[in-house]
């Protein structure tokens, strides 16, 4: 099988981009659902019409969202918004797909960060598999790199996995501005959301590093957001960045996944080092047992960027 039939749940930036780009990757979209509507066609939906209707009327079709999950597909793409705690409704979507022995690709961090063990148990009882490259670092192939190396050959992961926080810190450092000013600018540019809490409090980055820890622990240990020590950037004044700069350093919101646990906090890093990426770029460093350190950087967010990670997961599952 080369081309797969996709049911895409969630019509936000990532879901829409998956719908738009699927054909380019040789796949057919047979169902799309948002929170209130769905469209299902076993022969493939008219993706352009669906996206237009979403933009114009706020719905993707006339069917019920449940029809999409129950419809015909090979791979379920879970791209609904990330929720914490029980990670619903994302978790139930994944469960329904696996119960039908279908593959599931997640862009939603919630289930993988909060209920990793349960997901793996469901997967073990299913003919289907789960993949979730898109949950960590957008377009950057982090999880597939870990998979290629083998989780037991990687001792730690660290880096910058939130573009919004990184944009704010790098603008503060470059312009000598305070947090509030740069946040307003980031919101005007669409880099930060109206409610930036998830990004600036470090929660989004923490979820990604929790997922990395779950993958690196490879079943020996399970992590959730509650296990992470999380500090955000809201209390970092411009003066702290000035003092760091005088010393050839800067401050970045750095996450770390080690066997001891998960942490996210503003940290001092060399100004010219690999971790001090600027703007919305992301970077992850992997410490390997035999090959030293790997630095992988790129665009960690955005609809088309993240959709490429979803679609390469789909391709890995069906090839």
């Amino acid at each position: 099988m080369s081309g797969a039939r996709l049911a895409v749940l969630g019509a936000g930036a990532v879901g829409r981009s998956v719908v738009e780009l699927a054909a380019e990757y040789g796949h057919t979209v047979t169902a799309v659902a948002d929170s209130s509507s769905a469209v299902v066609d076993p022969d493939g939906v008219d993706t352009e019409a669906v996206l237009d209707r979403k933009a114009d009327a706020g719905v993707v079709g006339d069917a019920d969202p449940a029809d999409a999950i129950e419809g015909p597909y090979d791979v379920l793409v879970e791209a609904t918004p990330t929720t914490l705690g029980d990670a619903e409704p994302g978790f139930s979507h994944v469960k329904q797909g696996l119960d039908r022995d279908k593959h599931v690709v997640l862009a939603n961090k919630g289930p993988v960060a909060e209920r990793y063990g349960e997901l793996r148990e469901l997967e073990a009882d299913s003919e289907g598999e789960i993949r979730f490259e898109a949950t960590v670092g957008g377009a950057i192939p982090i999880l597939s790199t870990i998979e290629d190396f083998g989780a037991n050959h990687i001792t730690a992961a660290r880096g910058v996995l939130n573009g919004t926080a990184n944009f704010i810190l790098s603008r503060m450092a470059a312009e000598g501005l305070d947090y509030e000013h740069v946040l307003a600018e980031a919101q005007d540019l669409g880099v930060a959301e109206a409610d930036p809490t998830f990004d600036v409090e470090g929660i989004d980055a923490a979820l990604k590093f929790v997922i990395l820890s779950n993958v690196l622990a490879d079943g020996d240990q399970e992590f959730t957001l509650d296990d992470a020590a999380v500090d955000g950037i809201t209390d970092i004044p411009g003066t702290a960045l000035d003092l760091a700069a005088e010393d050839g350093r800067t401050i970045r919101l750095i996450g770390e996944s080690t066997p001891e646990g998960v942490s996210v906090a503003p940290r001092l890093v060399p100004a010219d080092g690999p971790l001090s990426v600027t703007g919305t770029l992301n970077i992850v460093q992997l410490e390997t047992t035999h090959a030293g350190r790997l630095n992988i950087s790129g665009r960690g967010a955005g609809g088309p960027e993240t959709a490429t990670a979803v679609l390469s997961d789909v391709s890995r599952l069906v090839e």
Binding site: D231, A240, R249, E256, L268, L275
Partner: peptide, 12 residues
């Protein structure tokens, strides 16, 4: 007070 810590030298 908040401490902005460096990454340890093992990680630099």
């Amino acid at each position: 007070l908040q401490v902005v810590e460096p990454l340890t030298e093992a990680s630099q």
